[in-house]
Nucleic acid binder design. Structure first.
Lengths: 334, 334
DNA sequence: TAGATATGCACACCTTCACAT
DNA sequence: AATGTGAAGGTGTGCATATCT
């Protein structure tokens, strides 16, 4: 068979390190776990020997003995876009600042998510960070029974565990008001229902609210199952123009879609923002690279990650959902 | 609201499930671990009770007892671009197909990578999947001492553990030959030295080899520390044109850089591919969205992930680096 | 008798806690 | 006081054995 992956006969234990250093196993444990409990000199000697031997404490044994671990588990639906990537970075940095490690599992379907959570619970992680979206029915109860701290990012009051998110409705209202203040009247809004669309469920009611407040019709709503990629931006613009040839603004679900719509405008000879304002969402790189640059909503996703860790570690007083900041990023396109 | 993150006093153990089901703990263990060893009827009953109770086997205890786990750990330098994302997907799918779980840790610096590997070794994972790049000095020895299967993706013969990658040199030669065959003569090549540049170290020698074979000068090499984002594409094009106003092709390190160069060509009124051929690398989404669409190298990164899992599980005979496929993606820009 | 199915025991390695120096 | 130690678990698995049909 395979000659290579032959496991080292007997793995190194704390006892081995203790013997080599001439101290008790407990002292070795303290060196790793509570360095301040061991005199500097002893600690240095022990750590040196541990490093030379290539000893790495067995986290499984540690977790079993202590009944808890120093690892946080995150489950993400994807990492394709910069929001989730930044979210993960925020989680990682905030975790590191507290001496916790972050492990991430990608789960593209609710079933995969459930399975990932089971693995994480099996590992007895110190906390689980979820992202709002469609979940498997048993998920919530499973987590409740496990009694592990949970956060659901991009979720609000109805979250599993506690929600952490910026105020999507407020962002949507601000963006809508901005367009109205520019004199836009026939504003197209794209609603996404599939996949992660529910993370942005508050966008449409908020949009309608502002349109209504301004005495405007809100009938220009296009509902799609999914919208990703530049191509869907073009398709969406087509549909809107067929619906309303005098469209003067479009609110896209993401910057990528907005960029696609923008390209399509340019192909059709429609001036942006002259004829049509195009607004994106998410502050992706692409928004700064196209011309005109996209007006968008900046979610500070790393702050969502930071907030999530604060909740998991109990550093966040109160009990309601945690609100993180957002900003309207006004650029050229709207 | 929350009846809350108060840790459940005593966690559920196999014994609890066994008691409730009227079987021995060992039977419960077998139900989870080796379902085929338990009679269907018994197993169904046990699993039902386990599910009702919300029991999740303690992986820490299991790993400790068994001396090994069913979890593979991956450490990635980033997940910003689709290559690493696809790689991670490939790892995940191939792992799932073998009943293994994948946990991912992002490490943006060599120190973070070392720390991530220590966590993974502490978890006693069944295998470690690394990505080539600058590593901390002690990393290789640490892994060797741990005796855990290791793969280094995007690496060749000099890999930590075993390398898995497509033939970057061959891809570079193929792309260069393609340009030469088109009649391109003054070809600019961008070499990246910093960060992950070493994953593509074979590109330049391969380029030079083909240029030499065609009797062409290869002096148009621009060496940069880093190149990412559209902006660097513009900068790079500027530099090349200052060097050689009659430049007729440019080989960019990524599709994103190529797109930036393409945009800059258009700003300057240079026709692509008429005046200048622009080639990218990596087959990112953007390459299909710009006009003209980018000619590029398609790495099939998910295959790298699949190959990595095969190596880790010993499913790959032989001992040298594992070669995965690549393809020259000929489109409009070159 | 054999084959399938279930069980018991002895650890795996580290940490908490109380105690000793 | 500051530092180091010893004993007692914590939970599940490998293996060998027992039981059932």
């Amino acid at each position: 068979m395979s000659d290579t992956p032959s496991i080292s006969p007997k793995s190194l234990t704390m006892q081995d390190v203790a013997d080599a250093a001439g101290v008790s196993p407990m002292t070795v444990s303290n060196c790793f776990r509570y360095p301040e409990r061991v005199r500097e000199k002893t600690r240095m000697a022990v750590m040196k020997i541990a490093a030379d031997l290539g000893y790495v404490p067995n986290l499984s044994a540690g977790t079993l003995a202590a009944g808890s671990s120093r690892v946080i588990g995150a489950v993400l639906p994807s990492m394709r876009n910069s929001s989730f990537y930044n979210y993960n970075s925020g989680l990682r940095q905030a975790a590191a600042a507290r001496g916790l490690e972050l492990i991430t599992m990608i789960a593209e379907t609710p079933e995969e998510e459930l399975s990932a959570v089971q693995t994480l619970l099996g590992l007895r992680v110190a906390g689980v960070a979820l992202v709002a979206g469609p979940h498997e029915p048993g998920l919530s109860q499973l987590l409740a029974l496990a009694g592990v701290p949970v956060v659901e990012s991009w979720a609000g009051e109805d979250a599993i565990g506690r929600g952490v998110c910026y105020d999507v409705g407020a962002a949507s209202r601000a963006l809508t008001r901005h367009l109205i203040a520019q004199g836009r009247r026939r504003i197209g809004f794209v609603e996404v229902t599939g996949g992660g669309g529910q993370r942005y469920a508050m966008r449409l009611p908020a949009f309608r609210q502002e349109m209504f407040a301004a005495g405007l019709s809100d009938s220009l709503v296009l509902t799609v199952r999914a919208a990703d990629g530049f191509a869907s931006g073009a398709t969406i613009l087509d549909s809107f123009l067929a619906l309303e040839p005098n469209l003067d603004a479009i609110l896209c679900p993401t910057d990528v879609v907005a960029a696609g719509a923008l390209f399509e405008c340019q192909r059709r000879g429609l001036a942006v923002p002259g004829d049509i304002a195009v607004a994106g969402w998410g502050d992706y790189d692409i928004g700064r690279q196209v011309s005109p640059m996209l007006t968008t909503v900046r979610p500070f996703s790393d702050e969502i990650g930071k907030g999530a860790i604060e909740v998991l570690t109990g550093d966040h007083e109160g009990s309601g959902a945690v609100a993180t900041p957002f900003a309207l990023q006004l650029r050229e396109s709207a």
